[in-house]
Design a binder for these strands. Structure first.
Lengths: 152, 152
DNA sequence: CTGCTTGCAAAGGCTTTGCAGAACA
DNA sequence: TGTTCTGCAAAGCCTTTGCAAGCAG
């Protein structure tokens, strides 16, 4: 049962919003363009779950900074580099999670809201054997929720 | 920790491919049209994970039976009635799982293949407290896999 | 300079929708 | 016969792509 560790270890890359963003991006092999730095500032100001659209809106809140294509390029790049995690819970769009620590999610299907499950509140025991010829790339646990008062 | 039970119990609706499909559909409040019966026959011939596209292809293998619109209508209907479970693991398409028993999945990102995790091979202990005002609608555990030889 | 990035618009893929004709009860 | 369902094509959404202009080092 060591593959969970082997799997998560290399992903723990973290951007500290207090430090210089540009040099942190360089450190992980990303050329720090103006757009990338601004996107990183938003994503890593605190742990967030954002769709590409939300990032686009927030980046350009005070004037045009980055185009839609650049948002997608950058989010994809950050994901490949392990700075954000893609969370697939909604068939209509991908969420990008700037919290790279091991944790899981609640997804409220009524509100579309994605929230963290504190990792100590969930325990996975007895992990399954992986199919032959495969290696673990990630574990996701999603609790789908409904708002109690919602008229389904 | 009783909400897991409360959550899964109502979903255990099962179509037996050996019995008359039409009357089983009626029993859950679905008018058994020719198209729906044929789609059900494919889905419930055995536990399956299929995309809408795959269902479309298989239904029409021996001549035109159902259109794309009807496939989507029917799969959505079956999902609402609890006959199939929607599995969201691939941002590009939804999978429909005709196995309604409680279980979890491996998803091979290289091959796009979705397979079951025998439920006894995975144990969730210490379930999280749900956010106030919400109720559980489902739990999903997804192990993302890579093929070991794949050139990422 | 030289290559990597950006941005625009167009294209793509999956899913939904509108509406006329057909099937079900 | 009234209601529900089907099918076609068009529309919608999110995401990707092509390519010329711009920026980083």
């Amino acid at each position: 049962m060591t593959y969970t560790l082997a799997m998560n270890e290399p992903t723990i890359l973290k951007i500290d919003p207090q430090q210089d963003i540009a040099s942190q991006l360089r450190k992980v092999g990303i050329t720090p363009t103006q757009q990338r730095v601004q996107i990183a500032e938003i994503l890593f100001s605190r742990p967030r779950h954002m769709s590409a659209d939300q990032v686009l809106a927030m980046v350009n809140r005070d004037g045009p900074i980055a185009s839609k294509a650049t948002i997608y390029n950058t989010l994809g790049l950050f994901a490949r580099k392990g700075l954000v995690r893609e969370v697939i819970v909604d068939p209509s769009k991908v969420f990008y999670d700037s919290n790279t620590a091991v944790h899981h999610h609640f997804f409220n299907e009524d509100t579309g809201e994605l929230t963290d499950i504190p990792s100590h509140e969930l325990l996975l025991t007895r992990l399954p054997e992986l199919p032959p010829g495969t290696e673990a790339a990630g574990i996701e646990v999603i609790f789908r929720l409904r708002s109690q008062d919602a008229a389904s």
